[in-house]
Amino acid sequence: MPPPVFRFAPSPNGYLHLGHAYSALLNFDLARASGGRFLLRIEDIDATRCRPEFEAAIYEDLAWLGISWETPVRRQSEHLSRYREAVEILAGLGLIYPSFESRAEIARLVVQREASAPWPRDPDGAPLYPGEAKSLPPDERNRLIGEGMPYALRLDMPKALARTEELAWQEDGAGPGGESGVVAAHPEAWGDVILARKETPTSYHLSVVIDDALQGVTDVVRGQDLFWSTSVHLLLQQLLGIPQPAYRHHRLVADSSGQKLSKSTAATGLRELRGQGASPAEIRRIVGLSE
């Protein structure tokens, strides 16, 4: 039996903080304890926010923590054609449609819908897509695309669910509400999710399942903030005929006010703590890991 494969996949849109350190160290520890492999992946599809200096800092901070990884490192921006292929497969199944509303227009539509009743929101709290682009005639869609209109490619969730069996996963950690064991997936809670945009041929949901499959990742260990995203990932895995890894969601490292850490929280940034004289062993203790 091949060894298990773990990964840590940060985005280079800021400096790493204690939450990243916990997730990276946990994956690295699990890989070593199981005789498995540890991969580092750079999720840099957001060209407007990702910067080379942040990527360089990721390598520096992880090495300082005592983490080593296999090379070459997979950088998503170097594999856009792979994601386009997946979009084309889903489009061939009739499961993709373009929507043309701007974020401001979508916000206005939500306000209009909520004049009569609360509009549904996804597990992250964002309103579900309220537009009617799905009903646009093909000629009108082609005309708008031909005129250079920006668009998002959305998954037709009802059609996608009609093509799949009941979805569930074995949760080896715990969800934000303590969920564990066999967890029923509810991708419909996300509505018609965006899988790509005109200027970017992929999204987090699509690229993460493609990358995990192509890299042979067997164990996805990540924060509880991504727990319910697993529902969408299982759906895409089944639609694309790719393997489903094991999932384990871990606790989030919070700041002194109990809030989830962000990359703008200087007090918990690894570079800041290192500059103040913290050692890798102290970082492990702070995040609750044994040395």
Rank of each mutant, 00 (worst) to 15 (best):
L155I: 06
G191C: 01
T202L: 02
E88P: 10
M1S: 15
D192R: 01
S102G: 08
E70V: 00
Q238Y: 06
R7A: 01
F38P: 00
Q76M: 03
A9L: 03
Q238S: 11
T200Y: 11
L109H: 06
A115R: 12
S231E: 04
G66R: 04
D172N: 10
S116T: 15
H20A: 12
S99A: 15
L153I: 08
F54D: 07
L39K: 05
I194D: 05
R222F: 03
E179D: 09
S116W: 11
R222E: 09
V87W: 15
S279I: 12
S68W: 00
A254G: 05
E165S: 15
K134Y: 08
L25M: 14
P12H: 00
P243M: 03
P245E: 10
V232M: 06
G177I: 03
A126T: 05
E188I: 02
T71I: 02
G19M: 04
E140C: 00
A57Q: 09
R285E: 15
P52C: 08
E114M: 01
V209S: 03
R154G: 04
L261C: 10
A117K: 13
L128N: 05
I210V: 11
Y151I: 06
S23E: 15
V182A: 13
P3Y: 07
Q170T: 13
A104Y: 11
M1V: 14
P176E: 12
E171A: 06
G148R: 10
G241A: 12
